[in-house]
Nucleic acid binder design. Structure first.
Length: 593
RNA sequence: GGGGGUGUAGCUCAGUUGGUUAGAGCACGUGCCUGUCACGCACGGGGUCGAGGGUUCGAGUCCCUUCACUCCCGCCA
């Protein structure tokens, strides 16, 4: 017999009544009646109530144990009387009558309670993560994460994918996020980089003829944190397939996501065939390439209204003349909302750094008229024209933003979310997936005015490969796609460019000459020159998938040992200083400030 | 790099217009209590009010600086 336990704290029932058992776990909670003491013993599997009476020789010692002490108890399984059954817990029909106990792990005074549903400061949670992780909600989140990953592995294997590991120490690449660098001892002055994704390796795996690859891959990017973005490291379901077109990738991922989300959540998937939205359409209708489709609000372009003579809103008219655009969000039947509702939104928009949101409500007496701060600038005809474009009706409110397209896209995208939340328009408990497709190959850098890759430089441009018009690079579309759920970008992927000449040409447009490409992407460009199959893939973010399934708003809630916003591990004290010997070996010196 | 929020007991928080000795719940300690499951009751210990400076007869409260955590912008092929 194992000296620590015969059973776990989650499995005992009436079937074992009157049996002698041994349990080990943490003291979750004590209820001390003076002559009768209840101890809730907790382990990974559940909670079992243990009871001891005054006449037992262990009573006084057990009474003194602080919460979270780890003990082993030996005792008898007793069926509870009807009135004392606790239906909240799995083992609620029995309790253990304690005969003896041993302390296995003492505890100091707790910096944070384990038995409590209160929220605690992030600082204390991260410093004492091992205590935080004992708490039920996050404990279950981490278990869910484990199950999700197993599920994905088994599904991928069923689909014929092979799992491979790729190097963690690799080379820095000029595109993309900041790299984490690792100095090389054997090669003084040179550095490895941690992979931002196994991008080149997975393509090399295809060139090596393995056909279908996947990996639960760690990715490292030295960028600032957000609620849905861990600083430093995160995990992707990285996958790549040979001899495929875009639709083949969609098929695999769509089916996997539907199976996964149906298996791990009760929330309904709104469209099991995910809608495909062109990038340009997404930017127009939602102002972002990661729209939350649960949100019914749609943005419309109404710039033309402000070229009409009968519209007298001179501020916007002047801006439009100078090249600005105007776009609108319409809220249904909001004419009776108090003034404060509208002003609130306008003020909020100003706080976001925009010039605010102009608005008027459509009313009808004899004629149709606009009511509200800017209502008077529009007459019956011009309002009808706006109603026509935006599908607005009498009683609706029109919010307007005017400015450079990139600016109004940004503010209206945020306003869509803000207004929908204020009006409670977002269907909770639903998953709304979509594909965003037809990304542009290039975009203009707003600061330098230079042309750069808009996403992945390894993507295949669309069109007849023998006859691509490179004279208008900004018009080039790529076989590049994102998958989005509830406004969260889950992953992006692409059909890759496997033709070296074409790759050189595209890099040239982005300002990298052949020599740089040969140097920076030597492994890949070389491989593509020796018979590369057409291939493509995608890499859904594991952390964000689990976050959606666990219905958490913050990625730390599904990450076992996360870093804080400043990329520090408060529990392990990372990053930390290193000895001068270590620095010397690496040929490094620290610049004093 | 920039903007917002928060910071008071081990933990979660309250603290009015600047005014006596800074409070509550949980945790901890002591005592009472034989059926609780957020057990109950009584008593007790515990505070650099994030730090520094200023205004004032008087600062947890007002002003300035700064630090920490967090959310957002930038950044994230």
């Amino acid at each position: 017999m194992n000296k620590y336990r015969t059973h776990t704290c989650g499995e005992l029932s009436k079937k074992l009544k009157n049996k002698e058992v041994s349990l080990s776990g943490w003291i979750n909670k004590k209820r001390d009646h003076g002559n009768l003491l209840f101890i809730d013993l907790r382990d990974n599997y559940g909670i079992t109530q243990c009871v001891v009476e005054k006449n037992n020789e262990n009573f006084n010692n057990l009474e003194k144990l602080p919460l979270e002490t780890v003990i082993n108890i030996k005792g008898e399984v007793v069926e509870r009387s009807k009135e004392t059954i606790n239906s909240e817990i799995k083992t609620g029909e029995i309790e253990i009558k304690i005969n003896s106990f041993i302390i296995l792990g003492k505890t100091k005074e707790l910096p944070m309670p384990v038995f409590s549903e209160q929220e605690y400061s992030e600082e204390i949670r991260l410093k004492y993560r091992f205590l935080d992780l004992r708490r039920n909600k996050i404990h279950q989140n981490i278990i869910l994460r484990s199950k999700v990953i197993s599920f994905i592995r088994s599904e991928m294997e069923k689909l014929g994918f092979l799992e491979f590991q790729t190097p963690i120490l690799t080379s820095s690449s000029p595109e993309g996020a900041r790299d984490f660098l690792v100095p090389s001892r054997l090669n003084p002055g040179k550095f490895y980089a941690l992979p931002q994704a196994p991008q080149q390796f997975k393509q090399l795996i295809m060139v090596s003829g393995f056909d279908k690859y996947f990996q639960i891959a760690p990715c490292f990017r030295d960028e600032d944190a957000r609620a849905d973005r861990s600083p430093g490291e995160f995990y992707q379901l990285d996958l790549e397939m040979s001899f495929v077109e875009q639709e083949d990738i969609f098929n695999v991922v769509e089916k996997l996501m539907v199976k996964l989300f149906n298996n791990f959540s009760k929330n309904k998937i709104l469209n099991e065939v995910f809608p495909k939205i062109k990038y340009s359409e997404a930017m127009l209708k939602y102002g972002t390439d990661k729209p939350d489709l649960r949100n019914p609000l749609i943005i419309k372009d109404v710039t033309e209204i402000f070229t009409r003579d009968d519209v007298t809103f001179e501020i916007f008219k002047k801006l439009v003349k100078a090249g600005s655009s105007v776009r609108a969000i319409v809220t249904k039947q909001t004419k009776d909302k108090p003034r404060s509702f509208f002003d609130n939104i306008d003020n909020w928009a100003k706080e976001q750094g925009s010039s605010g949101l102009a608005y008027f409500t459509i009313e009808k007496n004899k004629d149709i008229q606009g009511k509200g701060p800017i209502g008077k600038f529009f007459n019956n005809d011009s309002i009808k024209c706006i109603m026509n474009i935006t599908s607005a009706e009498v009683g609706d409110t029109v919010f307007l933003s005017c400015g450079k397209i990139s600016e109004i896209e940004k503010i209206l995208s945020l306003a869509r979310e803000k207004i929908a939340n204020d009006l409670n328009l977002i269907e909770k408990n639903k998953f709304a997936f979509c594909w965003i497709v037809d990304y542009p190959m290039f975009e203009k850098d707003e600061e330098t005015n230079k042309i750069k890759f808009s996403h992945n430089p390894f993507s295949m441009p669309q069109g007849d490969l023998n006859n691509i018009d490179f004279t208008k690079p900004l018009d080039l579309k790529a076989y590049q796609y994102d998958i989005v759920c509830n406004g969260i970008e889950l992953s992006s992927g692409a059909i890759r460019n496997h033709i070296p000449e074409l790759m050189y040409k595209l890099f040239e447009i982005a300002g990298y000459d052949k020599n740089i490409v040969n140097e920076k992407f030597s492994g890949m460009i070389n491989a593509l020159s020796y018979g590369a199959p057409p291939h493509g893939g995608i890499a859904p973010g594991i952390d964000r998938i689990v976050m959606l399934l666990a219905e958490e708003k913050n990625i730390r809630e599904v990450t076992m040992f996360p870093m804080n916003q400043n990329a520090q591990d408060l529990m392990m004290n990372a990053p930390s200083e290193v000895s001068s010997e270590q620095l010397k070996e690496l040929n490094l010196s620290i610049k004093k400030k």
